[in-house]
Design a protein around this nucleic acid. Structure first.
Lengths: 167, 167
DNA sequence: ATAAACTTTCACTAATTATTGAAAGTTTAA
DNA sequence: TTAAACTTTCAATAATTAGTGAAAGTTTAT
């Protein structure tokens, strides 16, 4: 496999994987492109390499910046804006985990808490609803706590700790 | 909040959360409905409660069965088929984690491995591609190993072990 | 101040994904 | 064996989500 083919394969795979971490294809592809680039890229560069429109590029870059994964790089003397992504995979994982927790898991935990707190009228249906949503609430909250714990540790804590456990 | 409202809120939240664990809305809603039901439900019951068509119900039930989350329950003397879902949240989490690993993570690991194994021609671009995809490969593979380790333990091992770590 | 160089916004269109419902298929009881 | 009771399939349609491109907005150099 040659460089160009490998590059395209990586970008396209990473793009279709976007759904796994909750972002769209173009967003994931832009991130992938920046991730393997040796230097910051302009909007023009990104548009050209991924064959997507200016508007699409602009909106997805903004979203990536909202996530905190991509940052503007101002090159002295250059009018045009350049972009880079976080290059450290551990840090990237931390950011993604944290954002997903905030955007998706936390709101669900709230609903589960509300639902499992309804008045218990002793009917079998109500009892079951409370029991099951409570179990789900506890599981989800534990998972979220773990994520946030990981996320607030220094860089390699996760790897070190978990490797000890799972070696 | 009354029973009916709580039930609807739970089903709709769980449904929109489907994307988080990689399934569609109707599929997640059917699972949610079965999860809080005190007894097995027929296709008719599900269609009526969720207001979805027969075809949709049939296809999504099949998918849930493929995942191993829902099973057919044959009630003696009844012609009609009834369905139940796994009621234990730990077991449910195990099944989901295992399936996602198999369907999504494993194939990505393979691509990352292939891409990071291209011939190193010493150009800066090739070196960067190899370095970054290798880092991603290692991270993803570790995460996947952890998941599978968890998944192959008995019921409460995960909770116990991790709670010790994160208390 | 102004015009060139650039970025953002957003109404429209395209692509993708989910849903329907009717026809075909299957099973069971008599 | 057949017909009623049920489930599955799948082409058509609807709903949702993503992408385009041109107009509006912003910044910078002169």
């Amino acid at each position: 496999m040659e460089y160009q083919e490998a590059k395209e394969k990586f970008i396209s795979t990473w793009g279709s994987l976007g759904s796994l971490w909750g972002i769209n294809k173009a967003m994931a592809q832009i991130q992938a492109l920046l991730f393997i680039s040796t230097k910051p890229l302009s909007m023009e560069d990104i548009m050209e390499q991924l064959k997507i429109s200016r508007g699409n590029t602009s909106m997805n870059l903004r979203q990536l910046m909202d996530w905190g994964i991509v940052t503007k790089e101002l090159i002295p003397g250059e009018r045009r804006e350049y972009f880079t992504t976080e290059k450290d995979v551990q840090e990237l994982a931390r950011i993604i985990a944290k954002e997903r927790s905030r955007r998706e898991i936390k709101p669900v935990i709230k609903v589960l808490k509300d639902v499992s707190s309804i008045k218990n009228d002793k009917s079998a249906e109500t009892k079951e609803l409370i029991k099951q949503t409570k179990a789900l609430h506890d599981l989800t909250e534990n998972a979220d706590k773990i994520i946030n714990k990981l996320v607030n540790q220094e860089q390699n804590w996760m790897t070190k700790t978990i490797m000890k456990l799972f070696k």
